[in-house]
Amino acid sequence: MLEVDRVTAGYGEFTALWDVTLRVSAGEAVAVVGPNGAGKTTLMRIVSGLVPIRAGDLRLDGDSLKGRRAHEIVSRGIAHVPEGRRIFPRLTVEENLKMGAFLPAARRHYAETARRVWDLFPVLAERRRQRAGTLSGGEQQMLAVGRALMSRPRLILLDEPSLGLAPVMVLRLFDLIRRVREEGYTILIVEQNVRQVLSLVDRAYLLEVGRIQVEGRAADLADQDFVRKAYVGI
């Protein structure tokens, strides 16, 4: 479904990704792991159109997304849950979800999609009239995921969903992501919790200093060496 084809990208003079190739098939869950500063977030940002591609191509179902702006890419069915959640703190929980359904196509199904999100995250339903900024970190992350689901995407990009959460919350969050996956969404996830994420996904890529180093099935990669590499990048 998604093909990242020999992409080079960066900010200003700085190049963050070199010749990166990656693919995600429909229905698959794929993880990108690697040490800090490896370019994982940049990878997510080029897919959602926040960072332009310098060389290479980006395709969704065979159509090039190169040069498309972020809001156009969302309408193609890719939802990005950015690093640090980035919910709208002074909007209510419900308004945040409304923003997730900003696209006209998603608006028409608002009530139905919202019901699914409430089912998935009952705690959000309880707090729907609360300002999002008053939620706990874990709840904010759920809101960020729920908000992404509101656009009725086919592919969800999750960037470090467990960042800054208490260990107990991390476990709950991974449970929830598993349920999202079971609903049939295709997922591309960037994570620091390598062990947990490998138990969740089908395949994984190891990204180091802007290049893909290893690629393989999650089950095969769940050995010590890979995990160690991902953490410390040796």
């Binding site: 809001h71 969302v74 950015p82 709208f88 909007l91 656009s151």
Partner: peptide, 16 residues
């Protein structure tokens, strides 16, 4: 209202 809270996130919602 959301724009002034997070300029980038609103683009990710599909708003031009």
């Amino acid at each position: 209202r959301a724009v002034s809270q997070d300029r980038e996130a609103i683009a990710l919602m599909g708003a031009d």
